Amino acid sequence: MKSHVLALLASAALANAHFTMQYIWTNGVDQGINNYIRVPPNNNPVVDVTSKDITCNVNGLSGTGVNTLSIPAGSEITFEWHQHAQRTGEDAISGGHKGAVQVYVAKAPSSAASFDGQGAVWTKIYSSGLLNPSTSQWATDVVNTNNGKHTVKLPASLPAGEYLLRAEIIALHVASTYPGAQFYIGCAQVKLTGGGNASPPKIALPGAYKGSDPGITVNIYNNLQSYTAPGGAVWSG
C-alpha cells in the first residue's frame, strides 16, 4: 500500500514536469539551443513502446529542415535536457523523475535528414540505471547534478557517414503498470568523418522494447535492488 501511495503522489506532483533535449555539445563545445536536433512539438513523454514515436519522439521520423553537424569519429557528445526552453535554476528534468539514461546510434543509408530510423538499425552505446539501491540514486539524479547533461564518447570504430544519435531518458516514477514508464527521446543528426569499419549489433525501435520488459514495467518504490534497462547490452566499439 505504501509503495502504491508513493507512486500516486509522484504522479500527481510531477504530472506536468516534462522535459526535452535542447542542446548537444561536441568535444565540450555548446552547439546552441535546438541546433542539429529533431525538435518535438511539446515536452510530453512517449508511453507506447510500439509506436513509431519511440524512434525519435513525435514528428521525429524526418529531419527535413534540420542541419547535420560534421564531427570526427570518436568525439564526445553531451546531451542537455531541460523542463523549459531555457537554462534555469530548477532541476533540469525534475528531481522526481527517477530512471535510466541511454544513448543509441543509427547509420543512415544516405543523408541523416532523410533517415526515418526504422528497422533494425540502432546500436546502444551507453546505458545507466539504478546506481545505488540503498539511497535510490538513479542515472537521472546524476543528470540533474550535471545541470541536465550526460556525456558519451562515440566509438572511433564507427564507419564514416551520417548518423542519428538517439538519447533517451526513461522516467519510472509511475511505471508499476503499463503504460506508465515515460520515454523522453531526443534525436540529433551528425556526420562522422574518419572512423573505422565496425559492424555493431543492431536492434529496432520500435520493435525491441516490450511493455512487459522488467526495465519498462517496474515498481521502483518496492525496495528495488537491481534494474535492467530495455534494449539489450551496450556495444563498446
Rank of each mutant, 00 (worst) to 15 (best):
Q182A: 09
I125V: 15
G95C: 02
N43C: 03
F115V: 08
E162W: 01
N197G: 11
V142R: 14
Q31S: 00
G32E: 12
D48G: 03
G28D: 13
A204E: 00
T135Y: 06
A120D: 10
Q118T: 12
P133F: 09
S75Q: 12
N27D: 15
Q22S: 10
I203F: 05
T50I: 03
D48C: 05
S226N: 15
N57D: 14
A208W: 08
P201A: 11
V218R: 05
N197T: 15
A15V: 05
E76R: 06
S134R: 09
R87K: 14
T135E: 13
H84T: 15
H4Y: 09
Q182F: 01
K107L: 00
A171H: 13
K191F: 06
N42A: 12
L172T: 05
T50A: 13
W25N: 08
P230M: 06
Q189S: 10
D53G: 02
P40D: 11
E162N: 00
F19H: 12
G60C: 06
T217S: 14
Q225W: 05
N27S: 12
G119K: 03
N42Q: 02
V121R: 10
V152Y: 10
L6E: 14
P40S: 12
H173P: 06
T140D: 03
N144Q: 11
G148S: 05
H150D: 05
N43P: 03
K98N: 07
V218G: 09
N144G: 11
L164A: 13
L61R: 11
S51H: 03
H84Q: 14
G96K: 09
G231T: 04
H173A: 05
N146A: 09
G74N: 12
H150M: 09
V47G: 00
L154Y: 05
N43A: 14
R38W: 04
S176F: 12
D30F: 02
T193E: 11
T217P: 07
K153G: 01
P201T: 11
L130G: 04
G148M: 02
D53V: 00
G215N: 05
K149T: 10
N43I: 02
S75G: 05
A120F: 00
V105T: 07
V58Y: 10
L130H: 01
Y36K: 09
M21Q: 15
L164R: 04
S75K: 06
D30E: 08
R166I: 08
N44Q: 14
G129V: 06
V234A: 07
L154W: 04
Q31P: 00
T88I: 07
D116H: 04
A12P: 00
K210E: 05
S157N: 14
L130Y: 04
I169C: 01
P200R: 13
